[in-house]
Amino acid sequence: MMNQHFEWVNIAKGLGIILVVLGHAPIDDILRQYIFAFHMPLFFLLSGVTFKGGYTELRPVGFAKKKGRSLLIPYFTFSVITYTFWFFLERPLLGKDDVDAIIPALGIFYSAGDNYLLTYNPAIWFLTCLFVVEIGFYLLLKYVPWNSVRVISIVAVAAAGYFSTRWFDSMLPWSIQVATVAVLFFGLGYLLKARTKIFEYSFGWVAAAATLSLIYPLIQFINRIDMRSGEYESIPIFISTSLLGIAGILFLSFRLEGKSRILSYLGQNSLIIFALHFMIFAIIRITLEYGFGIEGNPMPITSLWGIMFTVVTLIISVPFVYLIKNKAPFLIGK
Rank of each mutant, 00 (worst) to 15 (best):
Y290G: 05
F43T: 01
E90S: 14
F76K: 09
F185Y: 14
R228L: 09
T56A: 14
G113N: 13
E7A: 13
T119F: 06
L15P: 00
S79N: 10
I239H: 05
Y232R: 06
L130T: 08
W125G: 09
D226A: 11
G204W: 01
G189H: 03
F85L: 10
V312A: 13
A209L: 14
A182P: 10
I246G: 03
P122R: 04
G16P: 02
L243F: 14
A275Y: 05
A282S: 15
A207G: 02
P173K: 13
L106Y: 09
N269F: 02
S213M: 07
G306N: 03
A328P: 02
K67E: 15
M299Q: 05
N223L: 06
A194S: 15
A112L: 02
F278Q: 06
F137H: 12
L15C: 08
F38C: 05
A282T: 02
G248W: 03
Y265H: 11
T302K: 15
P236L: 07
L256S: 06
V178F: 11
Y162G: 01
A247P: 01
L191M: 14
I176H: 08
T310S: 08
F168W: 12
P300T: 13
K66M: 13
L141V: 03
E90T: 15
F43A: 02
Y143N: 12
A105Q: 04
G48Q: 05
P74T: 08
A208L: 04
I215C: 09
M227R: 00
G306Y: 03
G53R: 13
A275R: 04
F109Q: 04
P41V: 01
I154C: 08
A210H: 00
G258H: 10
I324T: 07
L314F: 07
S111M: 13
F131E: 07
I222D: 07
P319N: 07
F44Y: 15
F238S: 12
I27H: 06
